[in-house]
Design a protein around this nucleic acid. Structure first.
Length: 188
DNA sequence: GACAGATGAAGGA
DNA sequence: TCCTTCATCTGTC
């Protein structure tokens, strides 16, 4: 049976993010791709015109069918919006919705769990993350897992720097990574 | 199975 | 100190 997913916009002062929910929780968070003046370099999606701009109104799922938003997803979306705005403001996210990492590898999930343990305003190197998950030599693979992170910002891959203090990379763009770290009081 | 990658460490200039 | 090279591990095609 095909898993149904719902995409909802998350308007912030940094642009409109797009959250995708499965029946298990938040599955994906996409950077704003409209408004090129933004510092973001978000992934382009072809179906943004299908997303309702008014949360609570009927939206279309990934198959472009009209549907009503289940109550559980409304709750998750509210938590997502609050958490996202908090992180973007340099504050800690108090609560997060359940995250749906189904279909991902155990290695990726272990990396993302380690990322969530990095406190606001703190950073770790790719090597430290690799050691934290018990695979000290898998530093490059950790970088790959960070790049594959479907829920950036809430899973703070921006708090991972290269061992030499350089900024490394970021799926949302290095400017965005610098900006997020600066808001948390981290100096590169 | 080959290749690529958001690294890290070592060695040389 | 900076640059280059290479080892290492995992994911993707």
């Amino acid at each position: 049976m095909k898993t149904q997913s719902v995409e909802l916009p998350v308007p912030t002062r940094d642009g409109q993010f797009v959250a995708r929910y499965s029946e298990k929780g938040l599955a994906e968070l996409n950077f704003p791709s409209v408004g090129r003046a933004s510092t973001f370099h978000g992934r382009r999606r072809g179906d943004e015109s299908q997303i309702s701009s008014a949360f609570g109104a009927p939206v279309r799922d990934s198959s472009r069918r009209l549907l009503q938003i289940p109550v559980s997803i409304r709750r998750w979306h509210r938590a997502t919006a609050v958490a996202l705005k908090a992180v973007l403001a340099g504050r800690a996210a108090k609560t997060l919705p359940p995250l749906d990492w189904s279909g991902k590898t155990e290695f990726q999930k272990s990396v993302w769990r380690a990322l969530r343990k990095i406190r606001r305003g703190r950073t770790k190197s790719y090597g430290e993350i690799a050691r934290a998950i018990g695979k000290p030599k898998a530093v490059r693979a950790v970088g790959g897992a960070c790049g594959a992170n479907p829920i950036p910002i809430l899973v703070p891959c921006h708090r991972v720097l290269a061992a030499n203090g350089k900024i490394g990379g970021f799926s949302g763009g290095l400017n965005q990574k610098r900006d997020l770290l600066a808001r948390e009081g981290v100096k590169i």
